[in-house]
Design a protein around this nucleic acid. Structure first.
Length: 140
DNA sequence: GCCAACGTTGGC
DNA sequence: GCCAACGTTGGC
């Protein structure tokens, strides 16, 4: 396995389907069901040890915490054709202060986030700079 | 609940 | 290969 410095991601989930609390309750969750090529490419690029923001879409509209990639490069078990990717994640840290979409939009350093530019992409990349800014905001 | 944005599908 | 129609996502 090749190693590289950890990369950062943002994964969206609708909390009434699968929220942060569900992930904590399970201990480890499989991130599957993605049927978008760009999101799939992001999933396929993930490696164990990468970190991802957990974002609540539709309801909440905020980053609630951080999870780590525990298993990478698996085939989506819900996909019969075998061409879609999935990963497994574990909860790492719950934010004391969730970072809302409103706050992200109000922060100029986050204006170019893939989350903002492509609002419908369910798995997006986060730069180290963006990661640092959001983590600082989460500490209030 | 509505609708804009965007991705995908399918007819030609 | 184009593009209109359709379906889905996600902010509001």
């Amino acid at each position: 396995m090749t190693s590289r410095s950890p990369q950062y991601w943002l994964m969206k989930s609708e909390p009434f389907k699968y929220g942060w609390d569900d992930l904590v309750a399970e201990g480890e969750g499989t991130w599957d069901g993605v049927r978008n090529y760009q999101a799939r490419n992001n999933l396929a690029a993930m490696q164990v040890g990468d970190q991802a923001f957990f974002y609540h879409s539709r309801e909440g509209l905020e980053i609630v915490g951080i999870c780590t990639i525990s298993v990478a490069g698996i085939i989506d078990p819900t996909d019969e054709t075998g061409k879609w990717a999935a990963v497994k994640v574990k909860p790492a840290e719950k934010f004391a202060h969730p970072v809302t979409l409103v706050a992200i939009k109000a922060e100029p350093r986050l204006a170019d986030m893939q989350l903002i530019r492509q609002s419908r992409l369910s798995v997006s990349g986060v730069t180290p700079e963006e990661w640092q800014v959001i983590c600082a905001m989460a500490k209030g």
